[in-house]
């Protein structure tokens, strides 16, 4: 039965991502360089240790 739960999860995630991509379509022409290291397109900064600062308020 667990493999049915796996299929259910994959379908759910795929549906939610599709819905999100429909609302906010990604633009491949604005994609950053393939690899951040050594490029001008570094990290997005959206990471777990992020803390909003006074400057960002």
């Amino acid at each position: 039965m667990r493999h049915i739960a796996i299929i259910g999860l994959i379908i759910s995630v795929f549906s939610l991502v599709s819905l999100d991509a429909y609302s906010f379509p990604p633009n491949p022409y604005q994609a950053p360089d393939p690899i951040a290291w050594g490029s001008k397109d570094g990290a997005s900064g959206a990471l777990c240790s992020f803390a909003p600062t006074d400057n960002s308020r």
Partner: peptide, 17 residues
């Protein structure tokens, strides 16, 4: 409201690391 998070919120999750 912080710029980096506002950007994430209005972009596709496919653009989020």
């Amino acid at each position: 409201s912080a710029p980096v998070n506002a950007q994430s919120l209005t972009s596709s999750v496919l653009n989020d690391t």
